[in-house]
């Protein structure tokens, strides 16, 4: 059976799994085909007063290898054509890329059928609930992805909905997902939701007044997104290569791809 157990044990540091059993444990143990993998990468979404911005890096990894430097994670959803020129929603998926693509295609097909049947595009809130249902239906064999849905709500305000792999969701002002979520999210808490920011001279201790939370203007948000990713790239090996940004406003969706460090 030697040929079946020849994987070298890497003794160096493992990235986030510090404590792992190095020897076979006594008792029943089962090894089988693992249908999941982690393709790394990170995503980020911020809702503004009249826009929503979605971003993701374009690196796709497997282990320590870079499979490709350009694999988009942010998708336009719900257009009538394959070019998605008239799309009204954005979806970002990060985690297991194959599940991400399957989820994206399924949601898009559903939005297209909705348009065909109702003669109008699906609203973000409707699509948000539908996406949750799709993911929850696969509760016992989940899509291994962290999804974020973005668009403009009925009042024209930016909307961001974030999901866990089994479909729990919530509307938020901003959210980071994927490999570098834990690096980016605290930065967003501070810079978007002004956490731990107080108005100077308003008192001490509990007397301190929190800085008032106002939606950020678009140009500031774009800078914030770029900064967040530049920092994540420095500290996380699975993030880098390119930064794909999509901005949805009442005039449609703008897309741009900026370079990130490729090391």
């Amino acid at each position: 059976m030697a040929m079946f157990s020849q994987n070298p044990v890497l003794n160096g540091p493992n990235y986030s799994f510090a404590e792992v059993p190095k020897d076979a444990v006594d008792g029943l143990r089962e090894h089988r085909f693992n249908p999941y993998t982690d393709n790394g990468g990170s995503t980020l979404a911020i809702a503004g007063a009249d826009f929503a911005i979605m971003a993701g890096d374009t690196r796709l990894t497997s282990g320590y290898s870079i499979n490709t430097r350009y694999a988009p994670k942010v998708f336009k959803i719900g257009g009538t054509t394959s070019s998605q020129d008239d799309a009204n929603l954005l979806l970002s998926v990060v985690g297991y890329a194959a599940d991400g693509e399957a989820l994206q295609e399924r949601l898009d097909a559903i939005c297209k059928m909705y348009r065909y049947r109702h003669g109008k595009p699906m609203s973000v809130s409707a699509c948000a609930k539908r996406l949750s249902t799709i993911m929850y239906q696969k509760r016992f064999f989940p899509y291994y992805v962290y999804a974020i849905l973005g668009g403009l709500d009925e009042d024209g305000r930016g909307a961001v909905y974030s999901y866990d792999p089994v479909g729990s969701f919530e509307r938020e002002q901003c959210r980071a997902g994927g490999a570098a979520a834990s690096l980016i999210m605290p930065f967003l808490d501070n810079q978007v939701n002004f956490k731990n920011q107080y108005v100077p001279g308003t008192g001490v201790g509990h007397e301190l007044k929190e800085r008032e939370r106002l939606p950020l203007p678009r140009n500031e948000v774009e800078v914030l997104v770029k900064d967040a990713f530049d920092s994540a790239v420095e500290r996380h090996i699975e993030v880098g290569d390119g930064l794909q940004i999509m901005i949805i406003t009442k005039d449609g969706i703008e897309e741009k791809v900026l370079p990130l460090k490729r090391d």
């Binding site: 059976m1 079946f4 157990s5 994987n7 070298p8 044990v9 890497l10 493992n14 799994f17 792992v20 059993p21 190095k22 020897d23 076979a24 444990v25 143990r29 090894h31 085909f33 693992n34 249908p35 993998t37 282990g63």
Partner: peptide, 13 residues
């Protein structure tokens, strides 16, 4: 497609 040895321990055949 295997569980990683460095993460899940040596492969049990």
């Amino acid at each position: 497609g295997r569980p990683r040895d460095d993460v899940y321990g040596a492969y049990d055949a």
